[in-house]
Amino acid sequence: MKKLAVFVLFLALLGVAVYGYVTAPQTVNQVELEIEKETGNWKPKISQFVFTLVKPGERLELEELEYLKEKLESLPWVDRCSVSLLNGVLRIKVWEVTPAFAIFFAGSTYIMSNKGFVLDKVAGFKNFSPIYYYKGKTSPFTVDGEFVKIKNIIRTEIELAKKRLGAFSGFQEKPEIVLTDTGVNLIFKKQKVIVYLDNSENAWSNFVKFDRLANRLPAGVYDFRFFDMLVRGRNEKCLNRKS
């Protein structure tokens, strides 16, 4: 019994010693950044951010490691990460976010995260699915802290368009979605159809009803932004839906 008590005491003291060693401030002699899940060329950006927070030669406490992890996981490119400091080596493992969608604006393609942050900007058009085109008078982006993010109103337009298009199963092709200051334009290339819509439920509902009634819209331009009125064709000939 006495031996058991001594053994338990030994384990307790060993645990205290190990805990004290692990949690004691340590000097960072080396920084290792590993990308466990790579979804883009984000490592240089993540690395640059790491070295603004910690540099070799600094002493870090446990609380500072937790703060570093929190800051890294706030980066647009980081989904999650692990941070450890042992024997002077600061090891950072990163799982990158998966790009969610893209926006084509002013001649460039912006790769976006599911939280609406810009992950990358590519000159010209880059194939991506889904991709949305923006033709508003002002930029669709704003600055959130240190990073560029899509405006909430534009994100709402995207979510509404996705939801409404997802509920309509009768379309023969997926349209290009063009976001504007006043609503959404749908471009059906194969059908040679352009549809102008505002954000109201009425405009979308009338568009679907008219498409079903016509059993597929003939080639042309259709404007459903006016209440109970359809503007069709290049000459903007007005057709009353009730007639």
Rank of each mutant, 00 (worst) to 15 (best):
L213R: 15
P218S: 02
V195Q: 01
A102L: 00
Q172A: 11
I131V: 15
I131W: 04
G183T: 03
F226D: 10
E201T: 09
D181K: 12
S200F: 01
F226S: 08
V97P: 04
V193E: 03
F171Q: 00
I150Q: 04
L160T: 15
L197K: 04
P130K: 11
F188W: 07
G220W: 01
G145I: 06
A219M: 04
A123M: 11
V184I: 15
Y196L: 12
Q191A: 15
K126E: 12
S169E: 14
Y132C: 05
N185F: 12
F105V: 13
T109K: 05
E157A: 09
D120H: 12
R164P: 00
G220K: 04
G116Q: 08
K189T: 15
Y134S: 02
F168T: 13
I158M: 08
V195C: 02
G220L: 01
S205V: 09
A106S: 13
I158P: 01
K189G: 09
A106Q: 14
P130C: 08
F101R: 06
F101L: 02
V208C: 02
F168D: 12
G220P: 00
V184K: 02
R164T: 08
Y222I: 06
F147Q: 04
I177V: 09
A161V: 08
E157K: 11
G166P: 03
D223S: 00
I103Q: 01
K149H: 09
E157R: 12
K209G: 07
G166C: 00
R225K: 12
N152G: 12
E146K: 15
I194M: 10
F147M: 07
M229T: 15
A219I: 06
R216G: 07
D223Q: 04
V195M: 00
P218A: 02
N206V: 04
V208L: 09
Y133R: 12
V208Q: 15
A203L: 05
I158Q: 09
A102W: 01
V208E: 11
I103M: 12
L160H: 08
R164H: 07
S129I: 11
Q172S: 14
I150T: 13
K192Y: 03
R225W: 01
G145F: 03
A203S: 07
R225V: 05
P175T: 07
K192C: 00
D144A: 14
K209A: 14
I154E: 03
R212F: 11
F147S: 01
Y196G: 05
L160E: 11
W204N: 04
I150E: 10
E157Q: 15
I153H: 14
V178D: 08
G220F: 05
F224I: 01
